[in-house]
Design a protein around this nucleic acid. Sequence first.
DNA 1: TCTGGGGTCCTAGGACCC
DNA 2: TCTGGGGTCCTAGGACCC
Length: 424
Amino acid sequence: MSKKIFALVDCNSFYCSCERLFRPDLKSTAIGVLSNNDGCFVSRTPELKKLGVKTGDPYFKVKDLCKKNNVAVFSANFSLYTNLSDRVMKTLATFAPRIEVYSVDEAFLDLTGFNPDELVEYSREIKRIVERDTGIPVSVGVGYTKTLAKLANNLAKKSKKAGGVVCLLNDKHTEAALERTQIGDVWGIGRASESKLKAIGIHNAKDFKEYKNSKNILKLLTKVGLQTKEELEGNIRLNLEIVPIKKKEIMCSRTFGTPVFDMKVLRESISNYITNTAEKLRKQDSSCSKIEIFARTSPYKDVPQHFAFEQVILSGDSSNTLKMISYAFSAVEKLFKEGYEFKKAGVKLTNIVNDTEGQLSLLDENDSPRTRSLMKTIDLINKINGPGTIKSAACGVNDKAWSMSRNFKSPRYVTGYTELPKVT
DNA sequence: TCTGGGGTCCTAGGACCC
DNA sequence: TCTGGGGTCCTAGGACCC
């Protein structure tokens, strides 16, 4: 059996590239895309990076800089990005027998069995075709583990010489790549782990790989950190996940466009979040028995602060939106406090179980087959006709005072429910 | 680098029990 | 009442990612 080979294909400045696709006039302009509620930057083109704007920078802090430099700023337009993402993934799927869609802008490909000597060329072909057929520029990294493919991809983005493709399939290349990669840039090593590793003299990926005392790594970073080290050594610890792993918790939270003082309005927002999470729950054929609900004031504003939290235990496992909303309502009544300006709220579903397990139970409190088929029908209608075509009255009407600010939203170039125009 | 958005998983350590 | 041993379950908060 031949050695496994992984490729990671990652879209360059994905959200910005999506906006640019429909605005060719912005070809060499600095572009930035803001998170929900126009909070902070989540995607930046190299031109914007050069101006010193970082991921996570709050927009208001660099507003002047952006104005001065004619930066094109957009509110996130997720339905557009999802739509283009699907096109990219479909194209990628034609290049490998097995593919894991890792996030909206990244996919791992199984290239096991390909001749390693031909993979640079093949990766360039992938890059070329994706760009030709979707208009989205991508980078490709190849390695013997996912972590190495990820590392290769980082270098492909950084190095001009690489032309967007880096393959780490021989020891010499790999050693050099590991040495060039700062420890904090390794996938899975965040800030906390970075400082712990630096404290014991590990500064780059090569130091980490060659560090002999695995027990110490286990102690410092737990098994997750050790797993990363082993992946850098070329030992597979993370496999391709073709079928998405079922989530153990599902969350939805939003910052409000305008503060909320009214319990009725808060209930309406919570109903929407329940609707959103319950749909995800059903999509993975699960039910849950616990809902956590929170609402909070803005910690950045000089107003009376309050963090309200309630959790409700459902009678039996459920994925029934209507039942869950009614439980959530009583929780909101408990947590709401008059006189505070709530700026953010959310829900989290936990105690998630497989539906198949639930169905074996004879408890009356679990969802009936009738309820299940009602929910399935609603999901189908919303899938065909668009989100929110059918929803609980508790969710309110479309034009909500509390909904997100999106002051820089691009027009609706595409919808999720029709074929995209051909991009040339 | 006080990182003003959203989401998920992991684990240390407490509660409880034998 | 204090102490020790050992196990399971649960949760808050840490950590990481996009």
